[in-house]
Amino acid sequence: MATMLIKHMTSPLSLSLFVFLAFTNANAMLIKDMYSLCKETKDVNFCLKYIGTDTRILDANGLYDVLVIAISKCQDQVTNAAKQINEVRQKFNPVGTQQINFCLASYHVASKLFQKSWEYAHEDMDAAGAKASATDGANYMRQCEEEWKNGQIQKSPVTFYNTNVVKLLSIIQVIVSKIYGG
């Protein structure tokens, strides 16, 4: 049995897999570091669910990589909210249709701002700029949410996504403060 294990471990494929896993784990964000980061956020479980379980975290080499993941998650929320709006748009009266159009315009701007934020973080250029663009993107999403409170009150179809972005933004703020040693 031991001979078979040694023979298996010395095959080129097994050796390559072992080297890959060894180096991937050496550079990866440690689980304890991820948990420590999430403990500093407003919602630990949310952070662990959305950031800690993202498969890209295994390749994260530092806080800028985690920042990129958090910003990408914001972009996902914008995309999912726009899909949700398009799925439910026919259910609303004319006032609701105006609100939906306002939201789609706001989400279009938010998407561009999250893309700009992602570029800042992806290039390890400017964490503060990434945070500012993400904050602006979240504010556009928030404007959409507020629009549902104007005029004839109807339930917003995108509250879930807006709430997620607010929580992701709090994670982004923690990451940026850690990048700058705060």
Score class of each variant (00 low, 15 high):
residue 55 T to D: 05
residue 55 T to G: 01
residue 59 D to R: 11
residue 59 D to F: 15
residue 60 A to M: 15
residue 60 A to D: 09
residue 60 A to Q: 12
residue 60 A to V: 11
residue 61 N to G: 14
residue 61 N to R: 14
residue 62 G to K: 04
residue 64 Y to R: 02
residue 66 V to H: 12
residue 66 V to W: 12
residue 69 I to D: 07
residue 69 I to Q: 09
residue 70 A to K: 11
residue 72 S to A: 05
residue 73 K to E: 03
residue 73 K to R: 02
residue 79 T to H: 01
residue 80 N to S: 12
residue 80 N to D: 10
residue 80 N to I: 04
residue 81 A to D: 06
residue 81 A to Y: 03
residue 82 A to H: 08
residue 82 A to I: 08
residue 83 K to Y: 10
residue 84 Q to S: 07
residue 84 Q to W: 00
residue 86 N to A: 10
residue 86 N to E: 11
residue 88 V to R: 07
residue 88 V to D: 13
residue 89 R to V: 14
residue 91 K to G: 06
residue 92 F to I: 12
residue 94 P to L: 10
residue 98 Q to Y: 04
residue 101 N to K: 03
residue 102 F to I: 07
residue 110 A to L: 00
residue 113 L to T: 06
residue 114 F to I: 01
residue 114 F to E: 00
residue 114 F to Q: 01
residue 116 K to M: 12
residue 117 S to E: 03
residue 120 Y to L: 13
residue 121 A to D: 11
residue 121 A to I: 09
residue 125 M to E: 04
residue 127 A to K: 01
residue 127 A to Y: 01
residue 132 A to W: 01
residue 133 S to Q: 12
residue 139 N to E: 15
residue 142 R to S: 08
residue 144 C to D: 10
residue 145 E to N: 06
residue 146 E to M: 13
residue 150 N to M: 11
residue 150 N to W: 05
residue 151 G to M: 14
residue 151 G to Q: 13
residue 153 I to S: 00
residue 155 K to N: 12
residue 160 F to V: 06
residue 161 Y to M: 01
residue 169 L to K: 09
